[in-house]
């Protein structure tokens, strides 16, 4: 009886795992073939930014650009060699702590940044990518769009 109880307890995590399949994000999160385009929502406390992000795999890393829906550039980024840099940042985002935070989150999604365990991310079956930066309280939603 005691032995069968132990076996049951040992199997319980497997049972639970099968009931609630883990949705661990594979990295890089973005589609790696050619260019991927996303309609993006970034939420930070009470502020929201929406726009379109185009991400492209290049030799040695990733490049991307985020513009608002009217085409105005929010920032470009280059992720390679374990880090990510933001370029051409629009003035209201052009603060070192904002650049650093967004760059680290994008590096994480591109698979070039380290995983410090402070980010929760998932990729849904419909291709939507969700990322929550727990330390900074920022949420990202990437919804794939066609050409």
């Amino acid at each position: 009886m005691r032995r069968s109880l132990l076996i049951s307890l040992a199997l319980l995590p497997l049972l639970l795992a099968s009931c609630f399949p883990a949705r661990e994000l594979r990295r890089p999160a973005f589609d790696g073939e050619g260019t991927a385009r996303y309609h993006v929502l970034i939420t930070a406390r009470q502020a929201e930014i929406t726009g379109v992000m185009v991400v492209k795999r290049v030799p040695g890393g990733w490049r991307g650009s985020m513009v608002n829906e009217f085409g105005v550039k929010a920032f470009d980024f280059i992720a390679e060699g374990g880090r990510c840099r933001l370029l051409n940042t629009i003035p209201f985002l052009d603060k070192w702590y904002i650049r650093r935070t967004i760059a680290a989150d994008l590096a994480f999604l591109c698979g070039t940044g380290r995983d410090d365990g402070k980010r929760l991310a998932e990729r849904r079956d419909d291709g939507v990518i969700l990322l929550r930066d727990e330390r900074r309280g920022i949420k990202y939603l990437f919804q794939p769009v066609g050409r």
Partner: peptide, 28 residues
């Protein structure tokens, strides 16, 4: 930076009394 062109399309409505609707329909 990507050597890419992003094309979007939509409809626009303007009325002189300070009204404007700018609506993107594709690809978002």
């Amino acid at each position: 930076i990507l050597d890419e062109r992003l094309v979007s399309t939509g409809r626009m409505y303007y009325r002189r009394d300070n009204r404007l609707r700018w609506e993107y329909l594709a690809p978002y």
